Computed example of a mutant assay.
Amino acid sequence: MSFGETPPSTDVFADDLLTGETALITGGGTGIGKALALAYADHGADVAIASRSMEHLEPVAEEIESKGVDACATTVDVREPDAVDAMVETVLEELGDLSILVNNAGANFLSPAETLSANGWRSVVGTILDGTANCTFAAGEHMIEREDGGAIISMGATNSVRGAPYHAHSGAGKAGVHNLMQTIAAEWAEYGIRANTVAPGVIRTEGVMEVMGEAVAERVIEDDLAADRLGTPADCVSVALFLSSPAAAYVTGSYYAVDGGQLLAPTPM
């Protein structure tokens, strides 16, 4: 069996799937976040993107607007609650609403646990877990007040449900993200707010390939995946769009691994 290329979302979902929605995507200037931002725009949503630097945000915002929807680009350090509050206020001022939040901002680096510094731990866990919590609470306050529900999607990782050698900081942070989404799903169900986790495995992005290289990528495909290729941002886009749409109206607190079978036990042969 061959795991073929995932088709563009525009070939799978209706063009007006998210018309009338306003999405905020953190880490929206590169990689999976950029792919998500453009796909949400393709399907009718107004889109806000945020990251620590405007360098990558402005060209993506221009591309979003070229699709006939409104865009907002704003800087934020998701580790800082006041900065996150200001980001949400900017989105509301410029786009008028916020009905979908995608927590995509992340950080990571390789380090054996025994040499991982306190600052290194705080930097990664602060971005992944504290950042997700800060954005969820700030956006959630508006979603509760609007009395029309909302969708919160957090990008986790498969290293959150098993040991994460050389990634103790990010594995622990992503595990916390999944637990947070389950808790929010339970507590905020009464407001019509759904919260789910999308957990990518090894996704072929520029940043990942800079660290991994093609030789390691081939070993991962051969030894660790049921699929015969690495994932792509498009693989994550389709799941996030589904979870943002009315098709997932009864889905909350769930965990979607987008990993080509990486979490499966290897075949004993």
Rank of each mutant, 00 (worst) to 15 (best):
68 G>Y: 13
163 G>E: 11
18 L>W: 03
85 D>S: 15
117 S>Y: 11
151 A>Y: 02
127 T>M: 08
252 T>M: 05
30 T>N: 12
181 M>D: 07
205 T>E: 07
78 V>C: 09
75 T>I: 07
144 I>H: 08
3 F>I: 10
148 D>K: 12
265 A>W: 15
178 H>L: 12
53 S>I: 05
127 T>Y: 07
10 T>W: 10
200 P>L: 09
61 A>L: 04
77 D>R: 03
227 A>Q: 03
7 P>Y: 09
242 F>E: 06
157 A>T: 15
13 F>H: 05
184 I>T: 13
3 F>D: 04
172 A>G: 13
55 E>Q: 10
157 A>H: 04
20 G>L: 05
11 D>I: 01
22 T>N: 08
75 T>N: 04
59 P>A: 11
14 A>Y: 02
70 D>S: 14
68 G>Q: 12
232 T>C: 04
113 A>S: 15
39 A>S: 15
23 A>F: 04
12 V>E: 02
125 V>K: 04
213 G>P: 12
2 S>W: 03
67 K>A: 12
146 R>T: 07
121 W>C: 06
264 L>D: 07
236 C>G: 00
165 P>N: 08
41 A>D: 10
107 A>W: 10
250 Y>T: 10
205 T>Q: 11
137 F>G: 00
76 V>C: 15
134 N>A: 11
234 A>E: 15
91 V>W: 00
79 R>P: 09
31 G>R: 06
73 A>P: 00
245 S>P: 09
131 G>T: 10
230 L>S: 11
3 F>H: 10
243 L>I: 09
63 E>M: 08
28 G>M: 07
78 V>T: 13
207 G>T: 14
131 G>D: 09
209 M>F: 08
172 A>V: 12
87 M>R: 03
72 C>P: 00
228 D>H: 10
51 S>M: 04
37 A>T: 08
91 V>F: 02
200 P>N: 07
9 S>A: 15
241 L>G: 02
185 A>F: 11
247 A>P: 01
18 L>I: 08
33 G>E: 01
40 Y>A: 03
174 K>A: 01
